[in-house]
């Protein structure tokens, strides 16, 4: 397995009334085909990290390499799923339109785009909803559309920013399983950010634990739960319980560096 993502010395400081350092110096790699979860307290700079990797935000320091190429602008073969599906799907496009939209600028013909959209909608179980509009769907279904839209681009790296934080618990379980299934089938490399410890353990091949802002990696833990995971039995297993306890302890015990600036943490 080669290295898909290589982050070295990445740091970002927001200018403004009170300059806020979201992260100072982050270094890690993500291997091809790996699902890496980044877990950290709210407002620790997780979203900033993803935005810097996707180059939606110009980082103040450090470098990002995607399959060996230095990232200078938003990379071609990268896709992002945001937390807020209602704000990231285009309300004036149908479900199919939303999925086909990014494919246009990737030079796919109309027939190819249509075929891709049908295929990915099948993966997320929404084959029947292609002609509907986002606002006609439930929250969980909208987020599945957002995932399908990202997957349809066949991204080398899929970035997910708290993708399941805005849906109810049952839907959340369903979407988590959907992600595990699809990424295994498609062999997608995923970097997922969450504040939910259980979710990071359940989904990840590996969990990176971040400290309060300015974010630092306090632990890099492999998740030895195998490929077949189940919402009930996996969560009962000793490995799972042990790992989630360890992460919780890490998060609780990390010193809070500068309490005023972490309170005013810039999210997003």
């Amino acid at each position: 397995m080669g290295t898909m993502l290589d982050v070295t010395g990445l740091g970002h400081t927001y200018d403004g009334r009170q300059a806020h350092t979201a992260m100072s110096d982050l270094t890690f790699t993500v291997a091809s085909g790996e699902l890496t979860c980044i877990v950290g307290p709210s407002g620790c700079g997780k979203s900033t990290l993803l935005r810097c990797i996707a180059r939606l935000v110009e980082p103040s320091r450090g470098q990002v390499h995607l399959h060996g190429d230095l990232v200078r602008e938003v990379p071609e073969d990268l896709a992002v799923v945001f937390q807020d599906y209602s704000r990231s799907l285009f309300p004036w496009m149908s479900v199919r339109g939303n999925i086909e939209f990014p494919l246009r600028s990737r030079g796919l013909s109309k027939a190819e785009r249509r075929e891709r959209a049908t295929e990915t909608l099948g993966w997320v179980g929404l084959a029947d909803a292609a002609a509907k509009y986002p606002w006609q769907l439930s929250g969980g279904m909208q987020q599945r559309v957002a995932i399908a839209r990202a997957l349809a681009c066949r991204p080398a790296l899929l970035l997910m920013d708290e993708p399941f934080a805005s849906v109810d618990a049952q839907t959340r379980f369903d979407l988590e399983d959907l992600l595990l299934r699809v990424r295994k089938e498609q062999d997608t490399t995923v970097l997922l950010v969450t504040h939910d410890i259980d979710e990071s353990v359940y989904l990840g091949d590996r969990v990176l634990v971040l400290s309060q802002a300015p974010a630092e990696i306090v632990a890099d833990l492999p998740v030895e739960l195998g490929d077949d995971r189940d919402q009930i039995t996996t969560r009962e297993s000793e490995t799972f319980v042990h790992l989630r306890g360890e992460i919780a302890r890490l998060l609780r015990d990390t010193p809070i560096p500068d309490s005023t600036s972490s309170q005013a943490a810039h999210r997003g």
Partner: peptide, 18 residues
């Protein structure tokens, strides 16, 4: 216009005219 909508478009490398 929602920033997140524009971010989504940017994340997918949508061209300016589009």
């Amino acid at each position: 216009i929602d920033d997140q909508l524009l971010d989504s478009a940017r994340a997918f490398n949508i061209s300016r005219p589009e």
